[in-house]
Simulated scan of single mutants.
Amino acid sequence: MAVTRLKRKDRRNKTVSRLEVQFLKLGRNLETGSRSRESATSQLAKNNAVLAQIEAQAK
């Protein structure tokens, strides 16, 4: 059976939806004590720590 190629519009929709889901996962508010708590080693946590350090130095 031959492999069918997606049309350009469908390929774009697939990519956009994948990126959208990724963005929503990263930007979601995580409540303290929730089961989906963010790990301390995640890139987002590291970024927030660096930003907080820079803010403290600026004051």
Rank of each mutant, 00 (worst) to 15 (best):
R12A: 11
F23D: 12
V16L: 12
A45G: 11
A49D: 06
K25G: 01
A2L: 02
N13I: 11
K25T: 03
L19H: 12
A2M: 02
L44F: 15
K14D: 04
V3P: 00
Q53S: 12
Q43F: 14
A58Y: 10
L30R: 01
T15N: 06
N29F: 05
Q43E: 15
V3S: 04
R12I: 10
A2K: 03
T32G: 00
I54Q: 12
K59I: 12
E31I: 00
E38C: 05
R5S: 07
T15H: 06
I54N: 10
K7G: 09
V50F: 05
L51W: 05
R5F: 02
R37H: 08
F23H: 13
L26V: 06
K9M: 03
R5I: 03
G27D: 06
R5G: 01
Q22V: 11
T41Q: 11
K59T: 11
T4P: 00
S42A: 12
L51P: 00
S17Q: 11
L44H: 15
T32I: 01
F23R: 15
R28V: 03
L6V: 07
V16E: 11
R8K: 11
A56F: 13
E20D: 14
Q43K: 13
S39M: 06
E55G: 05
R35V: 07
Q53D: 13
E20I: 08
Q53L: 12
S39N: 08
M1F: 05
A49H: 07
A45R: 14
G27H: 09
E31R: 00
K9D: 05
G33E: 03
L26Q: 07
Q43D: 15
E55I: 14
L51A: 10
Q57V: 14
E31D: 01
T41L: 11
E20A: 12
L6W: 09
R18G: 05
R12S: 05
Q22A: 15
N48P: 01
A2N: 02
D10Y: 04
T4D: 05
R28P: 00
A52G: 07
A52E: 12
S17D: 10
L24G: 01
T15A: 09
L19Y: 12
A58D: 11
L26S: 06
L51G: 03
R35C: 07
G33Y: 02
L19A: 08
L51H: 04
N47A: 13
K7C: 09
